[in-house]
């Protein structure tokens, strides 16, 4: 319950026009702060939603695969430079952002516990290579990908993605080489 309230407050804070303008003023903050925070808000609020409608989630997302698929589609959409641009124009796309990303957070919460090791690893490795690619794309693109952000900001975002990729690689390495014997739970 605490989590749900926390999530709700976070969501409301993110929805204040001033915060929106501030967080969207820079590309790297837009992509790597606002968007993850929206997902986090959804994840937190998800605690209550999942409790309220356990049957629905058991029926539609029994093994977690359909949920994570939805998450991937939503996140893939928001990784596109075009999507950020259109969100800046306000209106429906912005609204869609404020709905789709919390929904993604909700389904991450639901799916991640249901997915087995293989599924989690697969999702993790796919995001790893896609974040790497995004880093490369934003750092290297000779053209301005967004109308509203300059190339320099694009480069900063690229470095941000690269940093995330490296962190993921380090996490992966320590995970697979750390000793898991004698433990109940499965790795990753």
């Amino acid at each position: 319950m605490k989590q749900m309230i926390g999530g709700g407050i976070l969501f409301l804070l993110l929805g204040i026009p001033f915060t929106i303008v501030f967080l969207e003023s820079m590309m790297v903050i837009h992509m790597l702060v606002q968007i993850p925070l929206l997902i986090l808000a959804g994840w937190l609020m998800g605690a209550g939603v999942l409790q309220k409608f356990p049957r629905f989630f058991a029926n539609w997302n029994g093994n977690g695969v359909s949920g994570i698929l939805l998450v991937s589609i939503i996140l893939m959409y928001w990784m596109l430079p075009r999507a950020m641009d259109e969100a800046l124009l306000g209106g429906w796309i912005e609204l869609f952002k404020f709905i789709s990303l919390p929904v993604a957070g909700l389904f991450i919460r639901d799916s991640w516990t249901k997915l087995k090791t293989n599924g989690k690893s697969f999702v993790f490795l796919n995001f790893l290579s896609m974040f790497g690619l995004m880093g490369w794309l934003y750092m290297d693109a000779p053209i301005q990908l967004c109308n509203n952000y300059l190339e320099l900001e694009q480069k900063a975002l690229g470095w941000g993605f690269l940093a995330i990729t490296l962190a993921m690689i380090l996490y992966l390495l320590q995970n697979v080489f750390m000793d898991h014997s004698g433990r109940e739970h499965e790795p990753l």
């Binding site: 090791t117 000793d179 014997s181």
Partner: peptide, 21 residues
């Protein structure tokens, strides 16, 4: 193939503790 090697990795870690082992 990625799925296949994720699975071999998972199974090896489960049995032997880590990829290092």
């Amino acid at each position: 193939f990625l799925l296949l090697f994720i699975d071999t990795g998972r199974a090896i870690i489960q049995k032997y503790g880590s990829l290092g082992k």
